[in-house]
């Protein structure tokens, strides 16, 4: 690794930089521009792994490993958990709602980037030392020596910070149950008292082609009933509507069946396309 101390890097590293750097930038762009949060998260994870590689290439072995373990392994998984919790299938509309926000953002971003690049280009960074000497006793040992001497106070503080964060997360997400949970009997009685839905809620999953839980059942006139889907899914906006083509398929099927049975049927079994719920999931 003494080559790292050199004025320029090896050809291998240059190759690695250009290839992986490109991928990292693409990953970052995808993070920003992917419609679904889960895709963004995956792209970000990829970028982070590439960054871990770069850390390793720069002689920060400990950080490289931590990057993979903590960031990609823990933090991104946490992100994925939350994405699942909020609704994995929910897709964002990238349409801008605040007037001029996108242009301002792009303008600022462009200016900011140009300024940063110009600043770096301006700085005389032609000479650098490499980590050969610093990493001579081992990267981890070197870091440890610094952390537990010069930076010990900051290190202790980060410990406090982590504890605080853990407690904070619990406080924020934990909901104290203030009353006894209702028993099944009580729930039933309440339903009778309200008088809206005496029988159990209708089941979902007519014309199931997927996991039928998130597909609304159809009413006799062909319209989907949201009541058939679990409230959690409704809240998340994850009700998957019976798509228009599915209804059309159904109609075609009936038509063919009639044709085959040579039966003329004047009844209107068709249903006007009633989809359009899918776009609302981003709510």
């Amino acid at each position: 690794m003494s080559a790292l101390a050199a004025y320029t890097t090896s050809t291998g590293e240059a190759f690695q930089f250009w290839v992986l750097g490109t991928v990292a930038v693409i990953g970052a762009l995808c993070t920003v521009f992917m419609k679904r949060a889960v895709h963004s998260a995956l792209c970000l994870a990829g970028t982070m792994i590439i960054l871990a590689v770069f850390y390793l290439a720069n002689g920060a072995y400990f950080l490289g490993v931590v990057q993979i373990v903590v960031y990609t392994g823990a933090i991104m998984m946490l992100f994925l958990f939350v994405v699942m919790l909020v609704g994995v299938t929910a897709a964002d509309s990238l349409k801008e709602t605040i007037k001029g926000q996108r242009w301002l953002a792009l303008l600022c971003g462009l200016g900011f980037g140009i300024l940063l690049v110009a600043g770096i280009g301006n700085a005389s960074l032609t000479e650098f030392n490499g980590l050969g000497q610093a990493n001579a006793g081992g990267n981890v040992e070197g870091l440890a020596a610094l952390i537990f001497t010069d930076y010990v106070f900051a290190f202790e503080l980060t410990g406090a910070l982590l504890i605080t964060a853990a407690v904070g997360a619990m406080v924020l997400t934990h909901r104290e149950r203030t009353e006894r949970a209702k028993t099944q009997r009580e729930l039933a009685e309440e339903r009778v008292r309200e008088g809206k839905h005496l029988p159990p809620l209708p089941a979902p999953g007519v014309y199931a082609r997927h996991n039928a839980v998130d597909i609304a059942g159809l009413l006799p006139d062909g319209t989907p009933s949201e009541l058939t889907v679990s409230k959690t899914l409704r809240d998340r906006g994850q009700v998957r509507d019976v798509s228009t083509e599915a209804l059309n398929d159904l109609k075609a099927l009936e038509q063919r069946a009639e044709d085959r049975l040579e039966r003329t049927n004047s009844g209107n079994s068709g249903n006007s396309g009633n989809g359009g719920k899918s776009g609302e999931a981003s709510k």
């Binding site: 890097t9 930038v25 920003v32 709602t97 600022c108 971003g109």
Partner: peptide, 25 residues
Amino acid sequence: MNPVNYLYLASLLFTIGATGVLIRR
């Protein structure tokens, strides 16, 4: 290759991230 390129890459990623913060809802 000059390792300064890492800095350019970093600033590029930073800018992309910042723009993303501004654009995404």
